[in-house]
Design a protein around this nucleic acid. Structure first.
Lengths: 350, 350
DNA sequence: TTGAAAGCGCTAACAC
DNA sequence: GTGTTAGCGCTTTCAA
């Protein structure tokens, strides 16, 4: 803490006005760039602003305005690279338009999600970017609808009848993963995911299964879906392998699943890609430096953030029309964790 | 976007007042929990609030208050687990006290850091938690001082003459890493870091070197410090090894350095711990599932966040006294990436 | 081209 | 106990 510094009130618009010898209204006009101010007066105002170091108080300014220049962002968590990058992008885009981004974490709780939303409604934010915990049918989206809030849904959503949505094209990416794995000769593949994020998980699963079975009708696709938490998934995966199942490849539909799969491989002493291949949805920086590097689906964070903000501001500015549902293409990075089934000792033979 | 929903004005305090047959002031008192309201009237107010779904507008409420109930948080980035967890914690602690946390990323830029701070000053936040890009002597801290802002400095700081500081006890943790490595027999160790974060890096480096040399005066400690960016570090590290240097262990002073070290090991075909041992400052979830698991110093995020907020609110509530400088103890997790020098083929022998 | 006046939604003094 | 009054700092008619 600075000790008793210049704690004197900050200059207000009236201070500027009196110093420039005009009214507060004129100062306001100068700040807004209105042309109908006599150049001479405008200059006096500018000088006064400079001398006093005046800056408008955004809160006071918003009080009088119809829409406040604040965008709310609600993410399921802040701890992952994906959402970290997302918030960074959204913040940057909001700033570019002169808005402040207020980000909050729902910590994977739908109850908290609605609470935060209510608080943002109290703040009378101009719009909200909501990355729902579950999907577009949760209580948060319902709250937004019921209260006539302006918003965009991203990430774990497909499409909605009230809000624009933007998400990664999980189905297409998963189809590509299927092509890669089947192409390498895999015929017994395990898919792991979280059932909670229903629509997204289904898209990823269907996209994968459909393509895999089309290319190799004899292929066997097993699925291990935990309801809502990661620890149960760990247990289910352990059981699956304990039963003696020996797929040659695993496709994890989300980041934590990839970590769980890796840790299960560790426990069993299996290495990628010799004993088993692995591809994960969601990339992370470490995946390219570990040995082996882990193959991953890279989500187009910038595109998602960009189009979400575009859609949001279009609505804020009064844009009409039916809600849009965008799917942004992903990139699939096949790395060393994927090989051909025959290349090493199969776990079944150990 | 919800299409033409109940866009009618939200209930204001006056709506509640007239419905309850009292004045706005009385409603305000009820909301504030002031005891001097006739129970009967209080009930009528409560009923009206309930019926109208009234909630106070935090902005309007703050307008009239001396201190606004907003805490600003400025982090160098949002993409890492460390700062993600930090923001999550800070948000939670601010909420507990009825404050809103507004977080912003300086994106590792001191210029941006000052801009954000100026904007937070415009918002007249009650206090700021600043995790400076460089250290406590940057322009941001100077701005806070000059403008009499209330704040706490965390992470890349040691102590300050104007603000309370809270950070991990890097020196002690580094000393422990030294004990572990020397204890395992390492006598030639490379330390990599980023020079920009001067004080913190010095503390980590000194803590390590002092202890290592005390325990093994014959040990050789090499240092590769990049000025401010990660890519130069990569190049410097490459040069270092290209010169034929063959330390038996590497201690990275920050997370990105650990990634760079791993990727350089990859490039050279070295494995941990057989060819070289590795310990990194900063833990991450993936470090315990890769093979080998990577040894790391775990920073006490919760403690740092907790004490930072404690110190901040103490100052907000008028607490006096000289600034405090807290150091929170870290945990050192020795994992498989660390072994004894003799255990495998030394890279020099390859 | 300008400024007076009204008011955004709320709280805090101070009468009553 | 309660209501009146007076703002917080700004924007926005609207009349001059």
């Amino acid at each position: 803490m600075a000790h008793r510094q210049d704690q004197q009130r900050r200059a207000s618009i009236h201070d500027v006005a009196s110093r420039a010898g005009v009214s507060a209204a004129t100062v306001s006009k100068v700040m807004a760039g209105v042309a109908t101010v006599k150049p001479e007066n405008a200059q006096r105002v500018l000088d006064a602003i400079e001398q006093l170091g005046y800056r408008v108080d955004p809160l006071a300014s918003d009080m009088r305005r119809a829409k406040r220049r604040i965008i709310g962002a609600i993410m399921p968590e802040f701890e992952s690279e994906f959402f970290g990058q997302m918030v960074t992008q959204l913040e940057s885009l909001a700033e570019q338009r002169g808005y402040t981004l207020v980000a909050a974490s729902s910590r994977e709780s739908e109850a908290r999600e609605t609470e935060i939303l209510a608080r943002m409604h109290d703040w009378r934010v101009a719009g909200v970017v909501l990355a729902p915990v579950r999907n577009e049918h949760g209580p948060a989206a319902a709250f937004m609808k019921a209260n006539g809030m302006t918003g965009v849904l991203i990430d774990r959503v497909l499409s909605d009848d009230a809000f624009d949505t933007v998400s990664a094209d999980s189905a297409a990416a998963s189809a590509e993963v299927a092509r890669e794995l089947v192409g390498k000769g895999h015929r017994h593949i395990l898919v792991v995911g979280l059932g909670e994020q229903a629509a997204t998980v289904r898209a990823r699963l269907d996209g994968f299964r459909t393509t895999a079975l089309r290319l190799a009708p004899d292929a066997r696709i097993d699925v291990v879906l935990a309801e809502s938490d990661v620890e149960p998934l760990r247990a289910q995966l352990r059981d699956y392998f304990a039963k003696g199942e020996r797929p040659t490849a695993v496709y994890s539909l989300f980041l934590k699943g990839t970590l769980v799969a890796l840790s299960e491989f560790r426990r069993r002493g299996w290495h990628c890609p010799d004993n088993i291949s692995l591809v994960g949805f969601d990339d992370a920086e470490w995946m390219q430096v570990t040995w082996p590097a882990i193959a991953a689906v890279v989500q187009p964070v910038r595109q998602i953030a960009g189009h979400a903000m575009e859609a949001l501001f279009a609505r804020i500015e009064g844009g009409e029309g039916p809600p849009t549902a965008r799917l942004e293409p992903c990139q699939v990075l096949m790395r060393e964790s994927v090989g051909s089934p025959g290349n090493g000792p199969h776990p079944a033979n150990q």
